[in-house]
Design a protein around this nucleic acid. Structure first.
Lengths: 364, 364
DNA sequence: GTGAAAGCGCTAACAA
DNA sequence: TTGTTAGCGCTTTCAC
C-alpha cells in the first residue's frame, strides 16, 4: 500500500514537545497528497468539499497543529510584525500595545515586542533582533524620528515601518500615526490661559528622549505668544524615577514660589504630571487651589485619581491600532503591485481632546 | 494570466525586504563550505581561527544577517518563549514584563507576548497561537492555576511552562514563582491591626479572575482570626474600570459608613486601592484621616502618589526574571538528560515586604 | 578542520 | 480538482 518511499514512519514518539503530527502525516491519514492537505488550510476554495472534510477530520484526530516555521520559511514572509516601544511602564504605551494587539489578532498577524528604554543603543540592538526574526514590518516609537539611526537603517534596508506617536517631520519621509502634538499642546495651554493663568511653566522629560516633548513645548510657546505672554524656558526633569528626589522637589519649589512664580504647570506627559502634583502637595501646596497642573497623554489612570487629572487626551488604543493597520496596508500594497501611489497615506493625524479633569482652576 | 518572470525581476532587486545575503552566499564569498560557515556562528571552536575570520569578514561585507527561521526549523527549537499576561495596563504586569525581557535578552532568548484579559476563552486562543509558533516554553499568569483548562492542555502536550504570580496549589504539580500571597496578605493586614484598626474590610476584584485575590483574602482571614477579630465578607468589585461608577461609590460608602463601618480597607491590588482612595475622597472622606487604605502589589506608581500608597510589595521585576530563568533551566535540564530530579525547583517563593507609605493611620 | 548531503515542515509552480 | 516536485536557510551527522 505505501507506494511512497517515505521514510517518515517516525510518528510513534513525539518529536516536537507540543505535538508530533505534521501536514504529511495528515495527508497520509486522509489519503491525499501533501499539496492538497496544505491547500485545505491555506486555500480551501481550491479543494473539493468532501476532500477538505476528510483532511480536516484526519487533522483533528491526529491533533495536528500547523508549524508556522515551515510556512514562514517557505513563504518568505512571517506575518510577524515587530513592535518597539520605549517602555510599558508608562501606561501610554501599554494602552497603545493593547490597540496593536487587538488589530493584529483581528488580521491574523503575530507580534514580537521589544522595549527600548529611550536608549538609542538599545534601540539599535533590539531592532537588529527583530530583523533577525524576519518580521514583515515594524510599528515603533523612537526617541527622535528626525535624527534616528535606526530609522535610517530601516530605510536603507527597505523594511516597512510605521511610527506611532512620532509625528513625521520631513515632508513625506515617514509613515506615522499621531495627534498633532504642537496644536494639541497649544490647545491645552490655552485652557490654562482661559482659566486666567498668565505665568505658566512647562515641565518636561529630556527633550533628547522625546521629539514629542519638544513639539509640545513649541505648542506651549505658540499659545503664550498668541496671547501676548512670555514663554518660559522648560524645566527638564530626568526620566521619571520611581520616587522623587529632593532636587526635583527643589526645582519645582523654585518654579512656583519665586517672586512672580508660575501659577500653572504644563507637564508634557501624564506620569510626569502625577509626580509633579505629588511634589506640590508635599511642598504644602494645593492642586488646583494654589497651583494648576495640566498633563498630556490621557492615560486612563488619570481619571482614577482625585482630583482627576486635567490633560490633553490622545487616543492611545487607536494610535496603536491605526499604526498596525497602516503597516498592513503598506505590506499588502507592496504585495499587489509596486505602484508608488498605492497604499495608505503617509500621515495619519488623529484628533486630540481636552479632558477637563479637576487639577486646573483659576490662579490663586 | 500574466506569467511569472516578474518574481525574478523583484528578487533581483531585494529578495528579502531586509537583506539578501544567505549563509550560502557568505560561504561562497569566503570560499568555504556551507557547513563551515554555519559552524563559525554556532560552534566557533570547531573551526580554525583564520578560516573563521575569513567567513566573518565575508559576512560583514555582504551584510549577512542570519535567518532565524531556517535555524529554528532545522534545529526543532525556536529559542522563543511565549509569555501570557492578563494585561499590561496594570503596572504589575508591565513591571514583570520588564524583568522577563531583561532576562531573556541576557540569555539570547526571544519572546512572544500575548495578553489574556483575564478571559479563559481568550487564554485558550492565545495559547494556541503561541503553540503554533512552536515556542520552546511559556511563562504565564492565569486566572486560576488550580482549575485552568489551558494548563491542563499544556501538561497534556508536555509543553514546559512556569507560572508567574500564580502560587502553586497542588503539591508538586506546577512550576511557579510568586510571593506567599496568603502569608504576605496576613502580614499586611496585621500592620492595619497594629495601627489600631479592628473593623477591617477587604475590597477585591472578581475572585474567579484571580486565585491570588482569593489567597490574599484568606490571609486577611488569618490575620483577623489570629487577633480575635471577625473577618468580613469581601466586597468584590468588577474589573477595574477606567472610571468609577456610582454603584461602586455607593458600595464603598456603605462599607465605611454603616453603623460600625470599617475604619480600614485592604485592597487586593494597588490599582484597586488607588481607585478606592479616589472614591473615598469624593465621598468627602480623608485618607488616612477617616479611613486607612492598604494596597497589594507594590507598583512603583504607588510611591509617586501623595500620600504614597501603603502596600504589600512583591518584587515584580524579579518575579518575571526568575520565572524566565526557571523556564530556561527546565529547558536545559530536559536537553541534557531526562533525569527526573534534574532541573530547577518547582516552587520559587520570593520575599514580600511592607511599604509603609502614608495611606494607613490610626482609626478615626 | 572541513565538506557533502540530508532534511526540518511547509507552500507554490507546474503537470496531469 | 489533485499530485509531483522543488526548494525556503539553516544545522548536523557522517566522511574525508
Amino acid at each position: 500500500m505505501p507506494r511512497k518511499p517515505a521514510a517518515l514512519a517516525t510518528s510513534s514518539a513525539s518529536p516536537t514537545p507540543s505535538n508530533g503530527a505534521t501536514l504529511m502525516n495528515v495527508a497520509q491519514a486522509a489519503s491525499v497528497s501533501l499539496a492538497t492537505a496544505s491547500r485545505v488550510f491555506s486555500n480551501p476554495e481550491l479543494v473539493r468539499q468532501d476532500t477538505a472534510e476528510r483532511v480536516l477530520r484526519a487533522a483533528g484526530e491526529l491533533g495536528f497543529r500547523p508549524n508556522l516555521l515551515g510556512a514562514k520559511l517557505r513563504a518568505q514572509r512571517t506575518r510577524i510584525v515587530g513592535v518597539m516601544l520605549p517602555t510599558l511602564e508608562n501606561a501610554v504605551f501599554a494602552e497603545c500595545w493593547r490597540g496593536i494587539e487587538e488589530a493584529a489578532l483581528a488580521q491574523g498577524y503575530s507580534l514580537m515586542l521589544v522595549t527600548s528604554r529611550y536608549d538609542p543603543a538599545r534601540e539599535r540592538e533590539r531592532i537588529e533582533y527583530l530583523l533577525r526574526h524576519r518580521v514583515d514590518g515594524m510599528v515603533l516609537t523612537v526617541a527622535d524620528a528626525a535624527r534616528s539611526a535606526v530609522l535610517d537603517q530601516l530605510d536603507a534596508e527597505r523594511v516597512p515601518y510605521v511610527l506611532a506617536y512620532n509625528q513625521g517631520t520631513r515632508r513625506g519621509k515617514h509613515y506615522w500615526v499621531s495627534v498633532d502634538n504642537r496644536v494639541s499642546a497649544r490647545a491645552g495651554v490655552e485652557t490654562l490661559i482661559a482659566a486666567g493663568h498668565r505665568r505658566i511653566a512647562v515641565v518636561s522629560g529630556a527633550f533628547a528622549a522625546s521629539d514629542r516633548a519638544k513639539q509640545r513645548y513649541a505648542g506651549y510657546q505658540d499659545a503664550m505668544r498668541a496671547h501676548g505672554l512670555e514663554p518660559l524656558p522648560p524645566l527638564s526633569l530626568p526620566a521619571h524615577t520611581p520616587t522623587h528626589t529632593p532636587e526635583e522637589a527643589e526645582h519645582i519649589r523654585r518654579l512656583v514660589t519665586a517672586p512672580r512664580g508660575s501659577t500653572a504647570l504644563f507637564c508634557t506627559n501624564d506620569m510626569l504630571a502625577i509626580g509633579v502634583i505629588s511634589i506640590l502637595k508635599r511642598l504644602g501646596l494645593s492642586v488646583p487651589g494654589d497651583i494648576s497642573v495640566l498633563g498630556y497623554d490621557g492615560i486612563e489612570l488619570g481619571q482614577l485619581l482625585e482630583p482627576p487629572l486635567s490633560t490633553v487626551v490622545q487616543p492611545n488604543n487607536e494610535i496603536g491600532a491605526r499604526a498596525l493597520a497602516c503597516l498592513l496596508a503598506r505590506l499588502n500594497a507592496a504585495g499587489a503591485d509596486a505602484a508608488p501611489d498605492r497604499g495608505p497615506p503617509r500621515a495619519t493625524l488623529l484628533p486630540h481632546a481636552i479632558r477637563a479633569g479637576a487639577t486646573v482652576g483659576p490662579p490663586a
